[in-house]
Design a protein around this nucleic acid. Sequence first.
DNA 1: AAATCTAATCGTAATAATACGATTAACAAA
DNA 2: TTTGTTAATCGTATTATTACGATTAGATTT
Lengths: 111, 111
Amino acid sequence: MGLTKTEPFTTEQNRIADLAKAFAHPARVAILQLLARKKACVCGDLVDELPLAQATVSQHLKELKRIGIIRGDVDPPRVCYCINEPVWEEARQTFGGLLATLETVVCCDGC
Amino acid sequence: MGLTKTEPFTTEQNRIADLAKAFAHPARVAILQLLARKKACVCGDLVDELPLAQATVSQHLKELKRIGIIRGDVDPPRVCYCINEPVWEEARQTFGGLLATLETVVCCDGC
DNA sequence: AAATCTAATCGTAATAATACGATTAACAAA
DNA sequence: TTTGTTAATCGTATTATTACGATTAGATTT
């Protein structure tokens, strides 16, 4: 146990969960906001803006890259991070579609 | 450490992270889809639909209730769960707004 | 070559999350 | 009162996540 069961769920459900993970930590929300608003871009600037150690920021950036929602372009000795637009758009579509669906039919005793 | 730092982030950033957590696990995505599409409602039916033990489903329902995105109305001996519409709408607005913002200005060397 | 700068990675510690069997609580039905 | 039904909670094991100091890797500069 302790390990999330992914096999019994659909690919779509697992992808939604992964996209949501990108936003499921305040530091990653802050990073994505900074990048989306182009307030920062270079890793060092992100570290300056965030109340976390460099190693921790790097770890969050790695997770965001794994999900695919950001890119990291090396420009030695710096790395320039930015939103990966296709995946950002995927997230927009995914959450937009998901949250648009809401049957208004009452169930049971009208809860 | 291992404890998420919440204090240095804004209330909004922490709320976004919490709302995202609702969708950050495939089982919770499945639960929310079932409820939004009114395919199930009673806890027992949710357990039947999901490939998880009753205790695990109950734990996920508890987390979703903590976030506020679902309600659980007791109808002994059953409990009828449903989407909490105001919070569902809050999520729609939140993610809609967040993902709408994307500056297209290039940074650095055009990443 | 030596010094410097940036960011990734390593090692590690602590807490959170996931999962499930077993038990309990609350209530209805017999 | 006893029995049965439903869902929450407890206890526990396992893995994931978060965080940071220290080190390393890669590249430039002196």
